[in-house]
Design a protein around this nucleic acid. Structure first.
Length: 260
DNA sequence: ATGGCGGTGGAGCACCGA
């Protein structure tokens, strides 16, 4: 079973790419971020016509997350627990039952947090603290669990072509990295990195300044696997070529294959 | 990156992303 995550930077702008990529990569489950639409303009019929069920949490203009799945989506949870006043559409979770077991999936769009020094950075850290608390509760279920999405965190200097450009950025702050490490300390595996411990790999290239042409990228989209899911991990990869398509998202899909 | 690109809303250009 192939499970992927992709920040599409507007689902309506990217529908042609999503269609092509679904047909070529044939994922079983897909986590999407930055839909930038509400439910009434989400292209549900087009996605269902490609053979996928969908569950989404949207808002006008910004954010928005979804999960697509060939098998039915069960127990859908919209919104990250821990702050009822948070109205940003950044978290959705669901369960998929396969013939060989259950897998729980979350699609996460972590706050960017820039500029550091404004209220945006503590919002990012607070969101991560809530994610850590919720993840600990889910770990107790002892299920195959995948927390996938745009984390907006560069975990280590290996995950940036030019780490010196990011030292003042929210994506590489010690506080951001420490929280990502906390998730790993609780037993989650960074699937892409665990399959390629020493290889520079990126999932995002800025639209500006020829970042793609210079391969000036960063790795900020991650699939964190619970111990139960890690035991089933067969391979992981990044569909880098999607960034070279015409009118691309600035992020590309990342995926894992599990023996499920 | 002193934000050069791209998306949204809404009909200019401000705001946001990373």
């Amino acid at each position: 079973m192939r499970i992927a995550t992709w920040n599409v930077n507007s689902i309506r702008q990217r529908l042609p790419h999503l269609t092509r990529w679904l047909e070529e990569s044939k994922p079983d489950i897909v986590c999407l971020q930055e839909l930038k639409c509400q439910e009434d303009t989400f292209p549900k019929l087009e996605i269902e016509a490609l053979g996928y069920n969908c569950a989404m949490l949207g808002q006008k203009t910004f954010n928005g997350v979804a999960i697509l799945s060939r098998l039915p989506l069960e127990d859908v949870r919209r919104g990250l627990p821990g702050d009822d006043s948070d109205e940003q559409a950044r978290y959705i979770e669901a369960v998929v039952s396969t013939p060989t077991g259950v897998v729980r999936i979350a699609s996460i769009y972590l706050p960017n947090g820039n500029p550091v020094g404004t209220e945006k950075f503590p919002y990012k850290l607070a969101f991560m603290d809530r994610l850590i608390r919720h993840a600990r509760e889910l770990l107790a279920l002892e299920e195959s669990l995948i927390l996938a999405g745009d984390y907006n965190i560069i975990p280590t200097d290996l995950d940036a072509k030019q780490p010196e450009l990011w030292t003042q950025d929210a994506l590489a702050q010690p506080e951001s990295r420490a929280r990502f490490q906390t998730l790993k300390n609780w037993g989650f595996i960074d699937a892409i990195r665990s399959c390629a411990p020493d290889t520079p790999l990126y999932t995002f290239w800025d639209y500006q300044a020829g970042a793609w042409q210079k391969n000036n990228g960063i790795r900020i989209d991650h699939l964190l696997l619970s111990p139960e899911a890690s035991a089933k991990l067969e391979k992981a990869g990044i569909d880098k070529e999607v960034r070279s398509w015409e009118k691309p998202s600035d992020h590309v899909p990342s995926w894992v294959e599990l023996s499920l």
